[in-house]
């Protein structure tokens, strides 16, 4: 999978900016360096970044008039893919094009920032969704407004939610309660960071909540309508007991993929929230890497997220088996 991303991402040649060459379109950039010197510089930059060699074991030949009938050529083992794969198997994820730091270091630093935040958000969102769905399934009077509110939250783009919260709660013109920029001074403990994480956390929970809660409510309602629930109620069990003992268990099965999706999302971070609240996390890192064509970082990130996703799928299947013994 990562191989595919690696190959796709390097398909297009790097432009001058991405090679770290000066932008020559500026006014008064002075004398015109001759074309030969410029090509030499490009070649040197490609060599330094390791993108001078052919991409893969074979490549398509440039069409030549009356040339070889077979449009493929063999490049041997001196290709970017071979080197990358070899290094990866030795545990070397490569170094960033942009700042020369090892990819592992950068991913590690970003994960350290992202995981506590997204982990807490996922746990909170899941707990809230369960509680909310169980409450809603008992059809209280506030069910309708709550459902519309949840759908409304879902319709709201995340950046609107994030900026809205920021403008409402960290604004000298409105409520000036919470800080905007997380900066722990030396010597302060973990708790000094708590206020900085309140807003991003609230934002993430609010964005993940609607889908989980709505799906779970729908599934619970369906289960309550099923035969066994009616039987259980006929036996005199209270709705609450039916819900918690029987319906919830069954309703969770189709929901597992959604829950499983939370795990890779934990690792991938939340681009919008991280950018709005100035947090140096994974989402920020990967978005930057994509826009600046920092392929080693990007491929490393994709590898990590992909691994998390595969793991979550396996976990979801195991969970389904545990919840419903009939699923083979």
């Amino acid at each position: 999978m990562a191989s595919l991303v690696f190959l796709l991402s390097r398909w297009a040649p790097l432009s001058d900016e991405n090679l770290g060459l000066a932008n020559a379109t500026e006014l008064g950039n002075g004398a015109l360096a001759n074309a030969q010197a410029r090509d030499l510089a490009r070649q040197a930059a490609r060599q330094r970044l390791g993108v001078a060699e052919p991409l893969f074991y074979f490549s398509r030949r440039a069409p030549m008039p009356g040339g070889d009938p077979v449009p493929w050529q063999w490049n041997g083992r001196r290709n970017q893919y071979h080197r990358w794969l070899g290094a990866l198997l030795r545990g070397d994820w490569g170094t960033s094009f942009r700042d020369g730091q090892p990819v592992r270091v950068r991913l590690g630093a970003a994960l350290a920032c992202t995981l506590p935040l997204t982990g807490a958000a996922a746990a909170l969102a899941l707990g809230l969704a369960l509680a909310l769905a169980l409450a809603l399934a008992r059809r209280p009077w506030w069910r309708r407004p709550a459902l519309v509110l949840l759908a409304g939250l879902q319709a709201l783009p995340l950046f609107v939610l994030a900026t809205g919260l920021l403008l409402a709660l960290a604004n000298p013109d409105a409520l000036d309660w919470l800080p905007t920029y997380a900066q722990a001074a030396e010597g302060e403990g973990f708790f000094a960071l708590v206020p900085y994480l309140v807003l991003p956390l609230a934002c993430l929970v609010l964005s993940a909540l609607p889908e989980l809660a709505l799906q779970l409510t729908a599934a619970l309602a369906q289960e309550l309508g099923a035969g066994y629930a009616t039987t259980a109620r006929a036996k005199g069990l209270a709705t609450k007991q039916v819900l918690q003992r029987h319906a919830l268990r069954n309703a969770l099965v189709p929901l597992l993929p959604l829950v499983a999706d939370l795990l890779p999302a934990l690792v991938a971070g939340a681009v919008v929230v991280e950018i709005v609240f100035s947090l140096p996390g994974m989402g920020h890192l990967l978005a930057d890497a994509a826009t600046t064509r920092d392929y080693p970082v990007l491929v490393g990130g994709v590898l990590l997220v992909g691994a998390a996703r595969l793991f979550s799928l396996v976990l979801a299947d195991a969970g389904a088996r545990w919840l419903d013994a009939r699923v083979a």
Partner: peptide, 18 residues
């Protein structure tokens, strides 16, 4: 201080963080 988002940066300036 690296603050990518402009709205956040304005708030940080108003609050005296920047």
């Amino acid at each position: 201080l690296i603050i990518p988002n402009e709205a956040s940066a304005v708030l940080a300036l108003r609050r005296g963080d920047v």
